[in-house]
Simulated scan of single mutants.
Amino acid sequence: MTKKFFYLISTISFVIFFALSFTLYQITGASSIKSLVEQMLHREQVIVRSGASSISSFIDLTSRSLLILSSNNIITPKILQDFVDNWSDTPVVGIILTDIQGQIKLTASNAEKLSLGGNVSDRDYFIAASGSPPGTISFGKPFVSRVPGAGQTFKIPVATPLYSNNKFIGVLTVSISIPSLTEKYLEPLKISPRTGIYLFNSNGDVFNGTTQEVVNQNIFHIVDEHPFLGDKIVMPLIRQKLTSNQESKLDIVIPDFSTGKLTRTLIASSPVKLNSSTKWILAITTPIDDALIFISPFVLRNVILLIFTYFSSIALSLFIYNRFLQKR
């Protein structure tokens, strides 16, 4: 009877001990995941903030250089070529000089073979620059160039008017490659191979993205055409973040742009400020599965601790049982 009673007490003690260990493992595991998610969101925020600041600074530096160039009394093809040569190995891909009618008169590029003869009078950057005083910088919406020979990727137009004897004579416009911008400043900082980098405006128009299918699309129109479970809650939240022009962090479930599968995703965004009226949004996305790879050391530690506890409890039970037999 005493022996059976001992077995019963030992078994109950072991079960309780194991249950407590398992509960502790679950609690610490959940706590570790929550902590890791917060750390990853913070890391994404630091990266996207740095990227947005770098992009803004680069565009500002390009703008200042363009203003210096526009102060020349005479602008020749060699002057334009020297300008783009000085910006080689940067996202600056070309420069054009147009007359007051928007007709392209001169071009220069390191990356593309641009031709003359195009007209940009309907472009927003040309219209804005045409009505501006000397020394003014105008930014247009990212565009795909119509200049013959230009690549078909989105570019940022930076324009300034040209004056001679206080008379408007044309517009000088630099093109900055958006894919090159994000590649230069953000690609080396990606958290995982599946980390996405997207640049869009507050309306949701995508200028550049890791998933090419969404480039030149509107994310809200995409969701309207391909709704998903929970979109009525998620999309208004995303729209609110886009229009706030503030940094934001989100841990939400959205479709993976490449697969369409609902995926828990960590998103951090930051505004890219070009001037007081022109702001874009830079966002970084990382699937939660990729982020949780970094929790493996914590999981391994807890598993080892649990196994150690398991065998320790067995050893302790055997020790007590042997002592019990010796006393008898």
Rank of each mutant, 00 (worst) to 15 (best):
K4Q: 15
Y7Q: 09
S10D: 04
I12E: 10
I16H: 05
F18N: 11
T23V: 15
Y25S: 14
Y25E: 15
G29R: 13
A30K: 07
I33R: 14
S35I: 09
L36V: 04
M40H: 05
L41Q: 11
L41W: 04
H42L: 14
Q45I: 04
I47D: 09
I47V: 09
G51F: 08
I55E: 00
I59C: 08
L66W: 09
L67G: 07
L69I: 01
S71D: 12
S71L: 05
S71P: 06
I75F: 03
D85I: 10
T90D: 01
P91I: 05
I100W: 09
Q103D: 15
I104P: 00
K105T: 07
L106P: 01
A108D: 07
S109C: 06
N110L: 08
A111S: 14
A111P: 01
Y125I: 03
Y125A: 09
S130R: 10
P134W: 05
S145H: 06
P148F: 05
A150R: 01
A150C: 00
G151A: 11
G151F: 00
Q152H: 11
I156F: 08
P157S: 06
S164L: 05
S164G: 10
F168A: 06
G170Q: 06
V171P: 02
I176R: 01
P179F: 11
E183W: 07
E183R: 13
K184F: 07
L186F: 00
E187H: 08
P188H: 10
K190W: 07
T195Q: 04
G196W: 07
G196E: 15
Y198M: 14
Y198K: 12
L199R: 01
F200P: 03
F200Q: 04
N201G: 04
V206T: 04
V206Q: 01
T211D: 14
Q212M: 09
Q212E: 12
V214E: 07
H221G: 05
I222K: 07
V223P: 03
D224C: 05
D224S: 12
D224E: 15
P227K: 08
F228T: 00
L229S: 15
L229D: 13
I233V: 14
I233M: 07
P236Q: 07
P236C: 02
K241E: 13
S244C: 06
N245A: 10
L250T: 08
L250E: 02
I252C: 00
F257D: 15
F257M: 12
F257V: 08
T259N: 05
G260L: 04
G260P: 02
I267D: 08
P271Q: 04
N275R: 07
N275L: 08
S277H: 10
T278P: 09
I281N: 11
P287L: 01
A291P: 00
L292R: 00
L292S: 04
I293L: 11
N302A: 11
N302K: 15
V303Y: 08
F308L: 13
F308V: 14
F311K: 11
S312R: 05
A315P: 02
L316W: 10
Y321R: 13
Y321W: 12
N322I: 13
R323M: 10
